[in-house]
Design a protein around this nucleic acid. Structure first.
Lengths: 240, 240
DNA sequence: AAGGAAGTGTGATGTAAATCACATCACAAA
DNA sequence: TTTGTGATGTGATTTACATCACACTTCCTT
């Protein structure tokens, strides 16, 4: 093992970067803090959706359980990310599950309180709007990747997103500093473990990626980009 | 042909219903009006995204062109709908195309002007946030329908959405008062014309739907709901 | 150090949907 | 009336992935 893991991540970006320091402080003032243990759920499909969550530390996955058993991972949020549903309907419910995957410290914002804050602070409202736009765009991009370029395209796109979220540069190679099982990757793209295994095998054989110490190393990012037509998106955008 | 087409639509809802009369007026004050002919494009993939569009009259489809030729229809907007991209990046570009499919009158809002307005009017900001939430939710729901329940599920979901958008009740049956070709339906669910044709054939044979005067008539909505697990969503939500 | 659990790798087979290739059908225009 | 042009309907074939069934590898436990 070399020193590659000591290097700085490609990006240590959180979606709350949409906000200025002051705005984030205002948001923090209306949060109440809670702790959640890995394995717990923040909310389930069908629960009332009237809160936002700010991940002070930890990790939360948003998933959708399919008809029988398997779960599809829609988003993975990390330290510094803000997430949740803001709906126009009073009796709105979640359509996904929020699973805490690392012990987390979470700031909870009631929608009512948020509305008051937005009402009072125009600048915050504008930033908040941009945050929502970013979230929406991420969903659309993911949608496109999964629909338009088949499973290999979805996998390549996911690898790129992993680079943008957990990648550390090592010369022209990028180490994804996060251990992932084939099953996890499969759940992220709605494929089976076996399919992911075969696709990763193909990529290894073609010298696009490699495994080092059980970490995925991307050796030919342009190839991945080409497969899923990832051209013009900002790094902040194409994340997991 | 009977009198069924004289009856009132199930819903004459537009997504601008998120706004109060006053807020909508404020928005209208910062719009400039333009006309667009059927067949033209409002914007293309890659164009700068710094405007919102309010469809005063007409129809616009948001599409994504796939690698070779075929285009995927993501949204169809009708009279009264507000749409467009609000992004946190200054140099943000569209990732989809906006095709005008009926001669339209469109109010254009510059993002800069919108920001000023949101900054000034807290109540508008709150409503705007809800509109954005609704848009995002629609994308997520569509995503789910297309990913989780295969092509038949996607078709059933689309038929339900068509009922909610263009449906007129006729006893227990619902007439979709809009002519649609198999190809159009195919583009909406990312399938081929042939597949749609076969699936529609199955549904006809099972007496779930029927054709009357080239309009689709839904005879067994509960069956469609069952296929794509459409249970708890408000009618305003599940639209095309 | 042995045993077990979780993860990986890979062949054989099944299946949904795309693709290809036509045969209609509806209807508008010449 | 014929002719051309979309749209529909349907079989045959191919393709992409899922499913099933195991063997193999890692690494963790006690």
């Amino acid at each position: 093992m070399t020193d590659m893991l000591q290097r700085k991540p490609v990006s240590q970006v959180a979606n709350s970067d949409c906000f200025t320091e002051e705005s984030l402080t205002k948001l923090k003032e209306i949060m109440y803090e809670m702790r959640a243990e890995a394995g717990n759920h923040l909310f389930w499909e069908g629960d009332t959706a009237d809160k936002l969550y700010f991940l002070k530390r930890g990790q939360v996955k948003i998933t959708k359980a399919s008809d029988e058993g398997k779960s599809f991972i829609l988003y993975v949020y990390n330290t510094g990310d803000l997430f949740g549903q803001v709906d126009p309907f009073q009796n709105s419910v979640h359509s996904f599950n929020a699973e805490v995957t690392e012990n987390s410290i979470i700031g909870v914002i009631q929608q009512k309180d948020l509305e008051v804050l937005l009402w009072q602070h125009g600048d915050l409202a504008v930033e908040f709007m941009k945050w929502m736009g970013l979230m929406h765009r991420m969903t659309q991009t993911k949608f496109r990747d999964l629909m338009m370029f088949g499973k290999p395209g979805a996998l390549c796109s996911t690898l790129i997103r992993l680079c943008n979220t957990y990648g550390k540069n090592h010369g022209s190679e990028i180490v994804i500093t996060k251990k992932l099982t084939n099953s996890e990757l499969a759940d992220m793209i709605g494929a089976t473990r076996e399919s992911v295994n075969r696709m990763l095998g193909d990529l290894k054989r073609a010298n696009i990626i490699a495994m080092e110490n059980n970490y995925i190393v991307v050796k030919d990012l342009p190839y991945l980009r080409d497969i899923c037509q990832c051209e013009n998106c900002p790094v902040d955008m194409c994340r997991i």
